[in-house]
Amino acid sequence: MSKQKLEEIVPQEALPQFLATEKSRILLSFKDEGELGLMQSKAGGRAYLPKSEPYPRNGDGQPLSLLAQINFEEMPALDNFPTRGLLSFYVDYNDDIIGIDFDEPTNTNGFRVFYFEDFSEVSYSKEEQDALFESVDKDDFYPVVEGEFWMYGQENSQLLLTDSYDFKKVFGGDFYEVAEKLVGEDDDKLDELFELAEVGSQLGAYPYFTQEDPRKYQEGVRHDTLLFQLDSVGIDTFNYGIIWGDCGIGNFFINLEDLKNKDFSNVMYNWDCT
């Protein structure tokens, strides 16, 4: 985050409130490294899933697909997040809206989140998981991740500069309303401020939406913490190895206390696109 650039855009008296929002996050990047192991951090591919756990399926019995998994031993440490174990996210590629329930975004019919603190149990093999998809109609299959990509992370900081529930809670208004009060109707400065948001795939800190944050209209927001965000991105020779609809973004939210307790049973799933 360019704090110097922020100082050039907003009035000096407004700077402390913005700077006080600084949070650490793990910014995620991806590489095409060929076939990966079941326990590696990745987007797409096949995951570690112990055989004591039924393979996740939608209400019609069709298998869900691995969106991404994070092996925390491969990531930098981040406050409140686990330091070991594996967190995996599955979504429904058999559904053209990728398993989201817009009315009840915690409904797990079309998505699932698993956390395994160790890898002591035998997992379904890649071949066993591949076999589950042999009968899937590829004409009605809508993958977000086109392939399997190694995921790696680096810790950096992020300021609150996106229109969201978080922003409204801190600043008392929508991002655009607050920004116009600070910089007037100077479109160039408004664009510059918006571009400082540093959107990306990440763990923790602040979310981004191509439309709007659905939590802004909820009373008593429970899912107050960004757990995981996956952005549309080109990877190596893939123009868009990861893409949500028309270049959108997906996010998963959790209650902070649940995160501290490693309880991932109540997660909110959202994605939107332009």
Rank of each mutant, 00 (worst) to 15 (best):
M1N: 11
S2M: 09
K3G: 02
L6F: 04
E7V: 07
I9K: 04
L15V: 05
L15D: 00
F18S: 06
F18Q: 03
A20I: 09
E22Q: 14
L28P: 05
L28M: 13
F30K: 01
K31W: 03
G34W: 04
L38M: 11
G44L: 02
L49E: 00
L49H: 02
P54D: 12
Y55F: 15
R57H: 05
G59C: 02
Q69Y: 02
I70P: 00
A77E: 15
G85K: 01
G85I: 02
Y90A: 00
D101P: 00
D103G: 12
T106E: 06
V113C: 02
Y115Q: 05
V122I: 15
A131K: 13
K138T: 13
K138C: 04
E146V: 07
G153P: 07
E155H: 05
L160E: 05
L161H: 04
K168S: 12
G172L: 05
D187T: 14
L190K: 14
L190D: 05
A197L: 05
E198L: 11
G204W: 04
D213P: 08
D213R: 06
H223T: 09
Q229R: 06
L230W: 03
D231Q: 10
D236P: 08
F238P: 02
D246C: 07
G250D: 06
N251A: 13
I254V: 15
N255D: 15
L256V: 09
D263H: 07
D263K: 11
N270Q: 12
